[in-house]
Design a protein around this nucleic acid. Sequence first.
RNA 1: GGAGGAAUAGGCUAACUGGUAAGUCAGCGGUCUUGAAAACCGCCGCCGCAAGGCUUGGGGGUUCGAGUCCCUCUUCCUCCGCCA
Length: 425
Amino acid sequence: MLDIRKIRENPEFYREETRKKGSAVDVMDVLALDEKRRSLLAEVERLKSERNAESKKIGEAKKRGENPEQAMAAMRILGDKITDLDLQVKAIDDEQTEKLMHIPNIAHASTPEGESSADNVVTREGPIPAKDRDFAAVDHKTLGERLGIFDFERGAKISGSGFPVYRGLGARLEHSLIQFFLDSHRECGFEEIIPPYLVTRNTMRGTGQLPKFEEDMYRCDKEDDLFLIPTAEVPVTNLYSDEIIPENELPKRLCAYSACFRREAGSYGKDTRGLLRLHQFNKVEMVYFAHPDKSYEEHEELTRFAEVLLEKLGLPYHRLALCKGDLGFGAAKCYDLEVYAPVEKKWLEVSSCSNFEDFQARRANIRTKINGKNQFIHTLNGSGLATPRVMVGICDNYQQKDGSLVIPEVLRKYMGGLEVIEPSK
RNA sequence: GGAGGAAUAGGCUAACUGGUAAGUCAGCGGUCUUGAAAACCGCCGCCGCAAGGCUUGGGGGUUCGAGUCCCUCUUCCUCCGCCA
């Protein structure tokens, strides 16, 4: 959520910048509401002040044994007026907040201009082995089914498309990735969290999934009104909602494995083969609670942590700085990491590392006290990493002519020393 | 699931038949000191430049006025039952 005071100070700037982020809501509408709300608020507070003073006098009069019937009658009328005004303020406040909740964050100055993914800028080239192979490589779906490590058909049978089944060494390889990521983060000083997978509506609002993107979420049940998390970012960022984190505890670096659930509404057809786009997948997420003055340095650090994972896995990747038009709803700046999949002949997004500045912190009410003054912290998060496309990257880059799949060096210790997954004969 | 109890600011603790949140510890700033402690002064729930408003787990009600009375929800504790 944006700071209404800042919008008030510089409306044209906010109008222009939210437009670049693709906002359908005009900040001027919100400003008009704010104007009205504040004038009503001043009025009602003046009346309350009067009531407080008069009520005190009534109490004192009664103690003296008097019967201030006249004053009480007057206060009855004043009270009704206050009730009425309070309701008006509340209604306008709700409307204003609801509008604000639909307005995206504005981009940081270092974010490139642009409207779509075509305008994103490559800011780092990772190692690219990309040597020609002397055999016709097969895609991960074909390879995985031949090796017996994925079972898409049965997954679809029991849950529908987009719900993969990993089995045997495939399940073990998946666990290896998750454990490798978590171990790496722990060595870098992260605290690991195992969060709930179902969260309340309010939690979903804190990180920005709601109210705007409800159609992308799985809602558990009408009575409980709980939602399946689309990423561990949601429960982990909200761990500190409505809290004041001591300044000396910043930054907090947390990581969490979770399954992630997304409807992926509207993304039928393209790029849905195999593991490329799923309704349920596994991901390890990194979340930072950052000091507001240092979040951009920490954004670089967090992104590097994700890149190092890809380097250790020996996967070719690059880093994109997303342009304003391609930036997510709450992000002020975002780097995507993409792995090159030579069979797909595509770059696959495996991580998205974002700085939300105080956008989520204002929604979730996460603050710190700096020089005696409460101030919203900055939240950052990044995948470290999402497994499905990393798995595709491994299949594409590590398969051999005989149909076997070499296990990346760093994962072998999690696979009991196994070096290669052989096709069954 | 059943029965009972509890929730006050960062912790702890008060508030007559309803009269407008007292105090304490921790913390922060200052005086003093070579430095520290002690002592003393100030700050010490939130918003606001201020005036002022708001705040006793959340929401609602009664009242001129609610920590206090009523309804409701949530969380925690104790006991019983059930359960991986």
